[in-house]
């Protein structure tokens, strides 16, 4: 049970002067239950890539298998695929349209062919799981704050009960508190529901804290694919393509270059602190031992 991409190529405006190859020979396997971050700067192909996962865009060449089935095969139901691979776009304003929040969230389930009661039931569950207070269910989605709109948008996709949840820059335009709330929510969803979550972002620091695997996109190709530690080893190369590793990664590398024995794999503040305390108190005791001798 997984998404497998084989040699996916995608070319915009083929055979015109404006031809752009947005994806180049992308091979990827998204295993069930993983929490993955896809990182790349604007124009790296990350948005194009995720729209292939649910069949919104069709590859110029290559094959995609969802749970072992070729999604480009004749007779394959792309609409079913879209309810199994849920995609939440960057701006919630692009999908909110109903008069009440509850109705809006029920739009997806209704399209799946569920009855009105079932759809509302699903919507209620989804809104509950994103932490929307019940007294807001009958309000207009347009009156909400940025963070709340985003929650409703996520609920709108969750209500279809997808197996994979993809979020395209879910924190763009939010303030730090709003950002942390959304990311914590997504992490909890992954933990509690066990669904596969793919987070698209250009912030390394956000992603490093949450995900198990990072896929770095550059110029339409997969540049790195591995655990955050593996990927941040290449912090110098990341810099050359306009991406930055978390601040602490730089700090630890600099300290190591200056002769302090620290763990350069640290990507979060907590890890850095642990490693530094060990290194410093280690230095401390080593010196003492020396004096004793």
């Amino acid at each position: 049970m997984s998404i497998v991409l084989e040699k996916i190529n995608f070319i915009y405006s083929e055979e015109t002067a404006y031809q752009i190859q947005a994806l180049k020979d992308v091979n990827l396997t998204i295993e069930d239950g993983q929490f993955i971050g896809i990182i790349g700067h604007t124009g790296s192909g990350k948005s194009t890539l995720i729209q292939h996962f649910n069949g919104l865009m069709k590859a110029t060449s290559g094959t995609i298998y969802f749970n072992g089935q070729n999604i480009y095969e004749e007779g394959y139901h792309l609409r079913d695929l879209r309810s199994k691979v849920g995609l939440v776009f960057q701006y919630p304003e692009h999908q909110l349209f109903e008069t009440t929040i509850l109705e809006d969230v029920a739009f997806g389930p209704k399209n799946q062919g569920l009855s009105k009661e079932e759809a509302l039931q699903r919507a209620t569950e989804a809104l509950k799981s994103v932490g929307m207070p019940e007294e807001l269910y009958n309000q207009s989605p347009f009156d909400l704050s940025g963070g709340q709109k985003r929650r409703v948008a996520i609920a709108g996709v969750l209500a279809m009960q997808p197996e994979v949840l993809i979020l395209d820059e879910p924190t763009a335009g939010l303030d730090p508190a709003g950002r942390d709330e959304i990311l914590d929510l997504v992490a909890r969803m992954h933990r509690e529901r066990g669904i596969t979550v793919i987070l698209v972002s250009h912030s390394m620091e956000d992603v490093a804290k949450y995900v198990q695997r990072i896929i770095v996109m550059n110029q339409g190709s997969v540049m790195y694919d591995g655990t955050p530690k593996d990927v941040f080893h290449h912090y110098k190369e990341l810099e050359t393509v306009g991406l930055a590793a978390p601040q602490v990664t730089y700090l630890m590398h600099e300290l190591k270059e200056r002769g302090l024995l620290v763990d350069t794999d640290a990507t979060t503040v907590a890890e850095a602190r642990a490693s530094l305390m060990e290194a410093l108190t280690g230095v401390h005791s080593a010196r003492k031992d020396f004096h004793v001798c």
Binding site: D175, P176, P246, Q247, V248, L251, V269, A272, R273, L276
Partner: peptide
């Protein structure tokens, strides 16, 4: 005040 303090400052 719900502000985001840079990693080096927190560390």
């Amino acid at each position: 005040y719900r502000l985001d303090v840079p990693q080096v400052t927190i560390l």
